[in-house]
Design a protein around this nucleic acid. Structure first.
Lengths: 268, 268
DNA sequence: GATCATGTGGCACCCAGTGCCGCAAATTCC
DNA sequence: GGAATTTGCGGCACTGGGTGCCACATGATC
């Protein structure tokens, strides 16, 4: 009716994550959230995702249907309860990055937070993976979640390119987006392979290896240096254990190209 | 029609796309689909996506609510009515690719089908872009659509890598996925920039330019050659107009590295 | 002890999406 | 040409996700 007096009752899911994080109430809230997520996964695993209603989840957790939706924005969120927090943590990694670190390495560390989130509970992740493969809605949901990380990384790279090798070219936004997508794709690939294998093995090591592959197929072995220019017409970088990559302007003096390569080989 | 028994009343959205494609009935069906999509966009644009009910769309098109769902699987599909067809066309591009074409170039031509789909009606695409930016559900929907193209391309690349430069290394699946993602990301970037600019300008040219950028930042200038190995420890490729990229094993004889680079420079 | 905030249960409600039935027009078969 | 069959549509009824609102209980605050 009249919105005259009371904003008192208006806030749904107000500012739970912020402030007063260590209150007893917040702990209760977290516990309830875990309870619900656990009950949901249990039911999804046994009778399928679509065949499980929110009523049943709530009942299994001993609460009312309405309470479920106070803790999860949707039924889907109950199966991916950690993406929001992980996104925040990934962002924290970016903002706390040491100033000398290459942005692409920072981003790699950022996505590692996601990997760790999955690796923290392999059995759960594997079961969830099984569900996402056969329920289109969940698949799309996960794709959307991953896209959020990718956007975060793209923004970060875009804001940290100019300070370094890139001269702020008009193609920077494109490169930032492609680079972010490459990192995220490598992560997804390793993650899915690990999940298909049942969650066994050292994912983080596999992830680092994949980053190495991408780094060598991609061009950012040249990361630490300045751009190729008339003043610095040649540069080299390692791309894996056995391969050296050299980049040079075609008008570079040949002896300088040689010198650069020899220098790099000597350090090998 | 082989099956003697009758599933007569059971098929919803049965096999519309297949067979009998040029029937008068199929034309009617297509017309109705366009009618509904048009009515939907009209309403979405004027009163917003979420504020528009399927009832209203159907009423605006002069049909019943139930009919809407006979033509679209969901309310969201009415705003992206062409993705299904475009996916089929993109797949057709892949399967009809000339055998000598590099798979990555094929994939670039494949995603161009998507770009053309948007470019075919700029005003509509721009308006739809405006909606997708402010309605989360539509944004996720579009992301999911794009992911379908990416999966298609990944599969294609994976199946066409071994025949060429790659020796079927265990990292091929990763590289295929990253490459597909790079192409798709470049497409998305150019598309969004074009949409933000109001749909003015030659998108296809911009897309080709972006492919060039990705191609040079990425490594597939080495595409035409064989892999770096003990037998062929050094290789070069052009990366843009002024830059030459050389790759060599660290145990490569230095004179051979030199010879390879000199050869490439001579051809420049 | 009164006050206020917060979490919860319990409704009523909206709307997307589905199954089913009946009907009418179109198509096919005899 | 007329009967049988198919096909598309209207019109239900129903399920289930998600929201708004109110009442109530608990717990913290002054």
């Amino acid at each position: 009716m009249s919105q005259s007096a009371k904003p008192s009752r208006t806030s749904t899911r107000s500012d739970a994550p912020v402030s007063a994080a260590s209150t007893k109430a917040a702990a209760q809230r977290l516990k309830m959230r875990r309870e619900l997520a656990s009950a949901a996964m249990e039911l999804f695993a046994t009778k399928g995702y679509e065949a499980t209603t929110v009523d049943e989840i709530a009942a299994a957790a001993g609460v009312a249907r309405r309470t479920f939706f106070r803790h999860f924005r949707s039924k889907e969120e109950a199966i991916f309860p950690d993406h929001d927090d992980t996104l925040v943590r990934a962002e924290a990694v970016l903002t706390a990055a040491p100033p000398h670190e290459h942005p692409l390495d920072t981003v790699c560390r950022g996505i590692k937070e996601v990997m760790r989130m999955y690796a923290a509970s392999p059995a759960l992740s594997v079961e969830r993976y099984r569900l996402t493969r056969e329920v289109p809605a969940l698949r799309e949901r996960e794709i959307a979640s991953v896209a959020r990380y990718e956007r975060l990384f793209t923004r970060y790279l875009l804001g940290h390119f100019d300070e370094r090798e890139h001269a702020g070219g008009s193609d920077d936004p494109l490169l930032a987006e492609v680079a972010a997508s490459a990192v995220v794709t490598a992560h997804n690939h390793v993650l899915r392979r690990w999940l298909r294998a049942g969650g066994k093995g050292d994912v983080e090591a596999q992830l680092d290896h994949a980053f190495g592959i991408v780094r060598s197929a991609f061009g950012w072995g040249f990361a630490a240096g300045a751009p190729i220019s008339s003043e610095r017409p040649a540069a080299t970088a390692r791309a894996g254990d056995d391969v050296l990559v050299a980049v040079a302007r075609t008008d570079a003096p040949l002896n300088e190209v040689m010198r650069t390569i020899q220098q790099a080989l000597k350090e090998a």
